[in-house]
Simulated assay, not measured.
Amino acid sequence: MLATQKQYVQWFENETLRHARWLSESNHLPPARIVLVDDKTTADEAYRLACEGTSLLWHGDFHNARQLLQALKRRIERTNERSEQRKIKKAANKTVAESSETPKDIPNLFHQQRQIQAQRSRILSRLLLELDTDYVSHLRRAPDVSTACTAAFGQLDKAADESCVLSFRDLQGALGAAQWREKGVSIESLGVSIYPHYGVFAPTRHEYVQLLLDAPLPTVNNVAYDIGTGTGLLAIILAQRGVKQVIATDLNPRALDCASENFTRLELANVKLQQADLYPTDAPLANLIVCNPPWLPAKPSSPLEYAVYDANSTMLRGFLQGAKQHLAEQGEIWLILSDLAEHLQLRTREELLDWFANAGLAVKYRLDTKPKHGRSQDETDPLFAARSAEVTSLWCLQRA
Rank of each mutant, 00 (worst) to 15 (best):
L175P: 07
L175N: 04
G176V: 07
G176K: 14
A177E: 11
A177C: 06
A177S: 15
A177Q: 08
A178V: 02
A178K: 06
A178W: 09
A178M: 07
Q179G: 11
Q179E: 15
Q179I: 13
R181D: 14
R181H: 13
E182S: 12
E182M: 02
K183M: 10
K183I: 14
G184H: 10
V185W: 03
S186N: 14
S186G: 12
S189D: 13
S189G: 05
S189L: 05
G191D: 09
G191N: 05
G191A: 05
G191T: 01
G191P: 04
V192R: 09
V192A: 06
S193N: 10
S193T: 06
S193A: 13
S193H: 12
I194W: 07
I194R: 02
Y195D: 09
Y195Q: 06
P196H: 04
P196Q: 01
P196C: 04
H197F: 11
H197D: 15
Y198P: 02
G199D: 12
G199K: 08
G199N: 12
G199I: 00
V200G: 12
V200H: 05
F201Q: 13
F201D: 13
F201K: 09
A202Y: 05
T204S: 06
T204A: 00
T204Y: 01
T204V: 04
T204G: 09
R205K: 05
R205V: 12
R205L: 07
H206Q: 11
H206T: 04
H206P: 10
Y208L: 03
Y208F: 08
Y208V: 07
V209C: 14
V209I: 13
V209L: 09
V209Y: 10
V209S: 12
V209W: 09
Q210K: 07
Q210E: 06
L211V: 10
L211M: 06
L212P: 14
L212A: 09
D214C: 00
D214G: 11
D214M: 01
D214E: 15
A215P: 10
A215Y: 07
P216C: 00
P216R: 00
L217M: 15
L217W: 11
P218D: 03
P218Q: 05
T219A: 14
T219H: 13
T219L: 12
V220F: 08
V220C: 11
N221F: 07
N221Q: 14
N221Y: 11
N222V: 08
N222D: 15
N222S: 15
V223H: 10
V223L: 00
V223I: 12
A224C: 12
Y225G: 02
D226Q: 02
D226I: 09
D226F: 02
I227Y: 03
I227M: 01
G228Y: 08
G228I: 04
G228C: 01
T229L: 01
T229C: 15
G230W: 11
G230M: 08
T231F: 06
T231C: 06
G232P: 02
G232T: 07
G232L: 01
G232H: 00
G232K: 00
L233A: 10
L234E: 13
A235D: 05
A235K: 05
A235L: 03
I236Y: 12
I236R: 07
I236L: 10
L238W: 08
